[in-house]
Design a protein around this nucleic acid. Structure first.
Lengths: 128, 128, 128, 128
DNA sequence: GTGGTCTAGACCACT
DNA sequence: GTGGTCTAGACCACA
């Protein structure tokens, strides 16, 4: 596991997103144990406090739960996992469409651009 | 002109994006004078230094240019304006597709989701 | 006559330097009449106040003198003209050497770099 | 560390140049931590925002990089450091030669003037 | 009137 | 403790 950190986003948010994606794609499953604070901190070469913050937020969102003395685990509520995917995708789509509209694109423009992007793997010269 | 500020993004960035969109959609055209620091500050009810920061960054990106003692103007290089639109759209698309793929969506999923979103105007319960 | 203005230096200073160089290289000679404020302003497409400021400074430096009702003339004191050249060159050299030393260059380095620059007409890829 | 400020140039630019020279001459090396905003501000007896401005510009030029919560460091890209020296020296030389030519000096004139300047340490009466 | 710089001081997020 | 942002207000150079 390794993450290339983007300087514009807090590290703890980036780790949160990483873990959420692991769950959504099934690499981490309901009930799985997740690494300890120390373990993850040394793995990612970051401050344990930052990892602590990550877990604290994930717990607040009820995505992981602590079993005292045993460690942290992915929530056992399967419905919660479903809703994470819906939420993340919904946010992405809303943001994307809102912004594209503000740039003056119409529905057909957007659909063909997205379709093109898949075929070529490029977006105005930016490699995928 | 009015902007509803979103607390997660610095105000000067939000104004930058607002002005870029004005240019992209043709409301501000090449060579047009843009409002003075003081004018925009009083219009948006924010501190002149914040506006100054906005313009400083836009100037760095060569989107506006200063004529000393006269004011600021949208760049006279039309090609620059073209490239802003490409850049903003390209970034949006790349980010959107990359993230959607990481959530496990395929091309067809994405196309139909985007299409649906237009029809219903909603995205998992979020109003457009 | 045309000057490409550099945004980092006040326009009136740039015109001052331009006129000084005209005098130093003999294009403008002792006793020659120089253009009027209005004439120069329309020629350079700038504000007459800016030209006025230029002449005011040149007069303060005793490089031009006003003959009331007749116009402005290059100073009749030839010695003054000599000293302008010395002054401008002296300033250039002092600045150049001081800065080069601070970058860690020695006398021999500097001499050979200057010599090279003449031969190639380039300075680290910058065309002359 | 102390800088004598010259009133004609913005303080933040003078500090930028100072730091660049420190890097070029090896006093600050790739990966070194640079002083914090508050530290440098109190050291130089200036406002922290002025130092902030300095660092913002150096970061834009990719000469320093921020590690969030930890401080700022000289860029780890050694090639960048090389190019700063080339750039600063190239600019100095280009400016010097262009201006000297405009004053009517030839290659031999310039070489002997520079050589003289080193021997006497003076430039038309200005002490080095 | 226009932008550019600087000071002073505050608040916040991140590590 | 570190940097990032924002406000408030001042002074100056320029056109």
């Amino acid at each position: 596991m390794s993450i290339e950190f983007d300087n514009n986003l807090p590290i703890y948010i980036q780790i949160m997103n990483y873990i959420k994606k692991e769950i959504i794609t099934g690499k981490l499953q309901s009930g799985d144990k997740i690494p300890s604070v120390r373990e993850l901190a040394s793995l990612l070469q970051i401050n344990p406090n930052t990892v602590q913050r990550t877990f604290q937020e994930l717990e607040r969102e009820e995505i992981v739960e602590t079993k005292r003395g045993l460690g942290r685990y992915v929530t056992s509520e399967e419905s919660k996992i479903m809703s994470i995917k819906k939420e993340m995708a919904g946010d992405l789509i809303q943001h994307f469409i809102t912004e594209m509209k503000e740039l003056g694109f119409q529905e057909q423009d957007i659909l063909s651009i997205v379709s093109d992007a898949f075929r070529t793997g490029e977006f105005n010269g930016r490699k995928s």
